[in-house]
Design a protein around this nucleic acid. Structure first.
Lengths: 178, 178
DNA sequence: ACCAAGTTTCAGAAAATACTGAAACTACAA
DNA sequence: TTGTAGTTTCAGTATTTTCTGAAACTTGGT
C-alpha cells in the first residue's frame, strides 16, 4: 500500500478546483450568464493569489480577446477588481470573495440592468391604456398595473436587502424560517 | 376636430398589447428566457379569452412547431394550462394571471432547475477537498462551503416564500421596508 | 525617438440556440 | 375502415451569441 503523499493532496485540490470551474460555468449558463464569464469568476474566487490575464488564458485555454472581454465585464459588474502591483506594468485581478457581498452586488446589478427597463416598459403600457373605455381595456390595464406594482415592491425589497449588512440579514433569515 | 370613436380605443388597446408583448419578449431575453416563450406568455396573461395554437401563431407570426414547443414549455413551468372545451378537439390555453402566483411558480421552478444542481455541484467539490492538508486547500474548502451554506439558506428562504400567501407576504414586505 | 510589454479592438469563424415547414402520428366520428 | 382535425416530431436552416487571433494602440523606460 502506497503512503499518502503531499503531492496527492495538491493534485486533488487542483482537480477539485477545475471541477468547480467547469460546474460553475454550466450553472452560470443555466442562469443566463456567459459560460466563460462564470468560469473566470469561479477561477478568481478560488484563487490563492492575484491572477494575470495570461494565467487565466492558460488555465481556461481561451484566447486573449475572450479573456479580456470577460474580465472587463466582471469588473463592470463589480465582481472583480484589477490591481497593479507597484513596479509592474501587468494588470492582475482579484475577486470579491465574501459571499454576502457577492450576492448584494449581483442583486444590485440585475436590478439595475433588468428590472428597471421592465418597469419603464410596463409604466409606458399602463399609461397608454389608462382611461380607455370597455371591459377588455380595463382588464388589460389592471393586469399591467398589477405587474407594475408587484415589480415596484420587489424592487424596493431588493434595494433594501442589497444595502443591508450580512450580520443583520442572516440571523433575520434564520428567524424567518422558523 | 374629430370626435373620439369607440374604434380608436380598440385600436389603442391592440397596439398597447402588441407593445407589451414585444417589450416582455425583450425583457425575457435579458432574464435568460427565450424571446418567443416570453411573448407567448405575455400574450396569454393579457388575453381576454382562451387562445388556440393557431391564434398564437397568427398573432406572433410564428410557425406551428415554434408555437407548439413554447406552449409545452410554459405548461411544464406551470405558467399556463391547456383547456379542452367540451365538444371540441382543439386545445386552448390560459395563463395563470395572478401576479403573486406567477411569481411563486417562477421561484419554485428556478429553484428546482437552477439552484438544486448548483448545490449538488458545490457539495461534491466540498466533499472532495474536505480534510486535505495545506493552507490553500483549507481556503478553497472554506470558500466552497461558504457558497454552499449561503445557497442552502437562500434555498430555504425561497421555498418558504413560494409557499406563502400573498395576503401574508405583501403586508409583511411593506413593513420590512419601513 | 524608439523599443518592449502590455492592453484593446474587431473582422471573420465557430458554436450554440431558436425556428420553420412538412411529414408522421393520434384519436375520434362517419 | 377511412377521413378529418388536430398534435407532435425533427431534419435542415436561420439567427444570435461567443470566440479567436492578429493588428492597432498605449505607456513607460532607455
Amino acid at each position: 500500500m502506497k503512503k499518502a503523499q503531499p503531492g496527492d493532496d495538491r493534485r486533488t485540490l487542483l482537480e477539485a478546483r477545475d471541477e468547480f470551474v467547469t460546474q460553475w460555468g454550466t450553472i452560470g449558463t443555466a442562469w443566463g450568464i456567459n459560460r466563460t464569464m462564470a468560469q473566470v469568476h469561479a477561477l478568481l474566487i478560488t484563487a490563492a493569489n492575484l491572477m494575470s490575464t495570461d494565467e487565466i488564458m492558460e488555465d481556461l485555454k481561451i484566447s486573449r480577446g475572450n479573456a479580456h472581454k470577460n474580465l472587463r465585464d466582471l469588473v463592470s459588474w463589480g465582481l472583480i477588481r484589477s490591481v497593479v502591483r507597484k513596479g509592474e506594468r501587468k494588470e492582475y485581478f482579484e475577486a470579491e470573495k465574501n459571499v454576502w457581498k457577492m450576492f448584494c452586488i449581483i442583486l444590485r446589478e440585475r436590478r439595475r440592468r433588468e428590472m428597471r427597463p421592465a418597469q419603464a416598459a410596463l409604466q409606458e403600457c399602463a399609461a397608454r391604456t389608462r382611461g380607455l373605455r370597455g371591459a377588455e381595456a380595463a382588464a388589460f390595464n389592471k393586469q399591467i398595473k398589477d405587474l407594475s406594482d408587484f415589480l415596484e415592491l420587489a424592487d424596493n425589497v431588493i434595494t433594501k436587502i442589497s444595502r443591508s449588512e450580512q450580520s443583520r440579514m442572516v440571523p433575520w433569515a434564520l428567524k424567518f424560517l422558523k
